[in-house]
Design a protein around this nucleic acid. Structure first.
Length: 135
DNA sequence: GCCAACGTTGGC
DNA sequence: GCCAACGTTGGC
């Protein structure tokens, strides 16, 4: 069981939409490192849903429900996608500012590499953030 | 709206 | 295969 963090701009695809859709194909990733992370995902892995740009906070969790497969929206055929299912909504969103000053979270992969849209999360980080988020 | 970080592209 | 130019992301 592994943990991840997936970013989305609320303008493009918000948590509210995620909850409404219940599941969605995570298409549109055009970055090898992010794609590699998705390749490593297994069914049942969990990921944080992070709002970038607007909000800058983790708002909930999702579960991987379909393995990495080709992304039809990618004409080059180089990139793939996974499918995720909505998990729990945070009672209290966990903001980037809070993460950056937290002793156990400030070295998270997505803080260090802000441009990476899909990044790994350790089990310890997962626990801490879930607690902060109230789930 | 600016800018830093960083990935990608293309000329050589 | 290097590296400059350029584009994109995302925080502030």
């Amino acid at each position: 069981m592994a943990y991840w963090l997936m970013k989305s701009e609320p303008d493009a695809y918000s948590w509210q939409q995620m909850v409404k859709d219940k599941k969605t194909g995570w298409s549109g990733v055009r970055n090898y490192q992010a794609a590699n992370n998705m390749k490593a995902m297994k069914i049942g892995d969990e990921a944080f849903f992070y709002h970038s740009n607007e909000g800058k906070e983790i708002v909930g969790t999702v579960k991987i429900s379909k393995l990495y497969h080709p992304d039809p929206s990618d004409e080059s055929g180089k990139f793939g996608m996974v499918e995720v299912t909505a998990g729990s909504a945070f009672k209290t969103p966990v903001g980037l500012a809070e993460i950056k000053v937290h002793e156990k979270l400030k070295d998270m992969a997505f803080v260090r590499q802000s441009r990476l849209s899909v990044s790994p999360v350790t089990a310890a980080e997962w626990k801490v953030i879930c607690k902060l988020g109230g789930v």
